[in-house]
Design a protein around this nucleic acid. Sequence first.
DNA 1: GAGTTTGAAACT
DNA 2: CAGTTTCAAACTC
Length: 297
Amino acid sequence: MDVASWSPAAASVNQRQQPQIKQQVAATISVAAGQSHPLTTASSSVVKPESLKAKTRPNELNDGAPKKQKHSNCKHFRCLKLYCECFASGMYCDECNCVNCYKNVEYEAVRRDSVGATLKSNLNAFRPKINSSSHGAKDNKEAGEVLMLGKHSKGCHCKRSGCLRKYCECFQANILCSESCKCMGCKKFKGSEERQALFHGDYANNMAYIQQAANATTTGAIGSSGYASAPVSKKRKSQELLLGSTAKDPSVHSLGHLQQVSVCGHYSKAGLEGALLCFGSSIQRSCKDTCRPEKFD
DNA sequence: GAGTTTGAAACT
DNA sequence: CAGTTTCAAACTC
């Protein structure tokens, strides 16, 4: 079946009164994309994209329970691009705050064209981003948390969040970063102190800790990249003052500073040069699973 | 609630 | 494929 021909409009009913149809729509897209759909397979191990975006505090990780559909707030593209979460998940917008939304029965033809165009550029556009393992969630003994066993199909590309905030899709899915990820300064690996800190103790303190690490990561290791010249907001300036980081001069990369923020043995032992190597895709990937904070001198 | 930051998606 | 821009969500104040 052609995904672009997906036509809930045939129901010719008000979608706001027929929420189950939206589920069928989502299921149709997933089936067309070669995936079972979580809404139709209750025990499915596939993590549904919209569940990744559930409104939770960063330390309220997904527990595998069904999540409410999120209400999007799109202002551009009439909700017909993947920026729109409803579009990406195959849902009609329902009680969303979108501006000029075309994702409803009235504009079905337009929406269908957009689905086709999206699929044309990316056949996997409507596939779930998270490929869960067959074992589902497991308890992480070291942190006492429930961690989903899965892998982001494309991997995240986080640069500043340390993969410990909801900006990170791996974080949202409650999975560890994998070799697919091209993130920088990743703290979401097994044994990460920062990651474990999220599950214990005070949220604000933890986030301050994480922010410090992320900030230091950026100003240190990424300092020689394009980020060094990025505009610095008042907020960030104040953070730098408070944290006393080396961020004032991005060209200064003290080894000690790097050691403080690194999660990677290459990084801390070899200084900036090693850091940059590690942040490059291949070495960072290879060291992520093996380097541990305790490697720091 | 406004403004900022972030990273995925889209574009070049 | 890499770099840049756009976008909406996450986040801070």
